[in-house]
């Protein structure tokens, strides 16, 4: 029987294991990936299913996509989170589902957020459409709205 070489030449070293902060970072981004539903550019196509889901599913628009903390890929992958996750993202990872919008330039972000808000809460009223009695359109963001985190 062949004898095995002596391992002692390597035993004074170790290969570092995963650090706790690496675990937190990787698992949070993987949980986001698990729960994410990517909104394609054809926003209107998804309007009805999204409205149906909106009551029960948390929805988020990630402002972080615009400020470079996430290296966003064209298919909205939550890839390469280099820094410790911002608190908002860690919280998102604990939600039942997360909608991400495709990466957009910072300048477009606010219009995308408006689009998403329309998607979830209905389109903004036409300028000549009167508001219902006792309600103003500025107050469309009702309590408990899933878009409240936007």
């Amino acid at each position: 029987m062949k004898t095995m070489p002596d391992e002692s030449i390597l035993k004074s070293f170790r290969v570092p294991g995963p650090a706790p902060e690496l675990r937190a970072r990787i698992l949070a981004s993987a949980r986001l990936e698990w729960k994410k539903r990517v909104l394609p550019s054809e926003w209107s196509r998804l309007r009805n299913p999204l409205r149906a889901l909106a009551a029960s599913i948390a929805v988020a628009v990630l402002g972080q996509w615009a400020n470079g903390r996430l290296a966003a890929s064209p298919n909205a992958s939550v890839a390469r989170v280099r820094e410790p996750l911002p608190r908002e993202l860690t919280e998102l990872a604990d939600r039942p589902a997360v909608f991400l919008i495709p990466a957009v330039p910072a300048a477009d972000l606010s219009s995308r957020q408006a689009q998403l808000r329309d998607l979830l809460e209905g389109p903004a009223p036409l300028p000549d459409m009167p508001a219902p009695q006792g309600q103003t359109y500025d107050n469309r963001q009702t309590k408990g709205s899933p878009a409240s985190c936007c």
Partner: peptide, 9 residues
């Protein structure tokens, strides 16, 4: 490892 976990998800 991060890419692996994203792929797993």
């Amino acid at each position: 490892l991060q890419n692996v976990f994203l792929k797993i998800a």
